[in-house]
Simulated assay, not measured.
Amino acid sequence: MKLYIKNMVCSRCKMVVKSVFENIGIIPISVELGEVEVKNDIAEHQKKELIKQLRSIGFDLIDDKKSKVIDKIKTLIIDLVQNKSNNLKTNLSDYLSQELHQDYTTLSNLFSEVESTTIEKYFINQKIEKVKELIIYDELSLSEIAYSLNYSSVSHLSNQFKKTTGFSPTYFKNLKSIKRKQIEDL
């Protein structure tokens, strides 16, 4: 049985969610971003406790089909930006269609209807937040950041950054008071 969990975006999330399941006596077979597989059905009292504990730490159980698809799209995009950006050998629409086994137009329409933004804008916002993170860490040059996030050039990254944030990357680097947004707040 697979359960879908909203707001799982990193390996720490997987550890925390696994621990919640184990604390209420459910041993997961596998825990991946956005989903947990368990061997048996979950009793109603366990499900209520699971929902309560997940919500207390910023997660939630997803029940309806639309929400599962939306969450899967978000999880794939976040994973792509955080872990595999430069490995994407196809465009985003083909990648999502292949991973979710659905037509991109269907996915795009559903996402826009539910989230009130496009998949592309969501993807760009995720990339810009990653750029902010890398700028703040100050370990990579802007050129290295552009390459690692699969931008065609530094000017493309700079233009998109300025369009999204209102600041140039250099100006942002000099601002210490600007806080990054948490992934789930995007």
Rank of each mutant, 00 (worst) to 15 (best):
G34I: 01
G34W: 01
G34T: 02
G34N: 01
G34V: 01
E35P: 03
E35I: 08
E35D: 05
E35Y: 14
E35C: 08
V36Q: 01
V36L: 00
V36N: 01
V36K: 00
V36I: 10
V36M: 03
E37Y: 01
E37S: 08
E37W: 00
V38A: 07
V38H: 07
V38C: 10
V38Q: 08
V38E: 09
K39Q: 12
K39H: 05
K39R: 10
K39P: 04
N40L: 02
N40C: 04
D41Y: 13
D41A: 12
D41C: 11
D41N: 15
D41Q: 12
I42F: 10
I42D: 06
I42T: 08
I42G: 06
A43R: 03
A43V: 12
A43T: 09
A43P: 03
E44M: 07
E44W: 02
E44Y: 12
E44A: 13
E44C: 06
E44Q: 13
H45E: 11
H45M: 04
H45Q: 10
Q46W: 05
Q46K: 15
Q46D: 15
Q46H: 14
Q46G: 08
K47V: 11
K47S: 11
K47L: 15
K47T: 15
K47W: 01
K47P: 00
K48W: 07
K48G: 10
K48S: 14
K48P: 08
K48F: 13
E49I: 03
E49Y: 03
E49A: 06
E49F: 02
E49L: 14
E49G: 04
E49N: 13
E49R: 11
L50I: 04
L50R: 02
L50F: 00
L50E: 00
I51S: 07
I51W: 00
I51H: 01
I51L: 03
K52E: 13
K52M: 13
K52P: 11
K52Y: 13
Q53W: 02
Q53C: 05
Q53F: 05
L54N: 06
L54I: 01
L54K: 09
R55L: 10
R55T: 12
R55I: 14
R55W: 05
R55N: 14
R55G: 05
R55K: 15
S56D: 11
S56E: 11
S56Q: 07
S56G: 08
S56A: 12
S56P: 02
I57R: 15
I57G: 04
I57A: 09
I57E: 11
G58D: 06
G58C: 05
G58M: 08
G58I: 05
G58N: 06
G58Q: 05
G58E: 07
G58K: 03
G58W: 10
F59I: 11
F59R: 08
F59W: 13
D60Q: 15
D60I: 11
D60G: 12
D60W: 12
D60K: 14
L61M: 09
L61Y: 12
I62W: 04
I62K: 06
I62H: 04
I62A: 04
I62Q: 04
D63P: 04
D63S: 11
D64S: 07
D64T: 07
D64E: 09
D64M: 03
D64Q: 03
K65F: 12
K65R: 13
K65Q: 13
K65P: 07
K66G: 10
K66S: 12
K66I: 10
K66Y: 14
K66R: 14
K66D: 15
S67W: 02
S67N: 09
S67T: 05
S67E: 15
S67M: 10
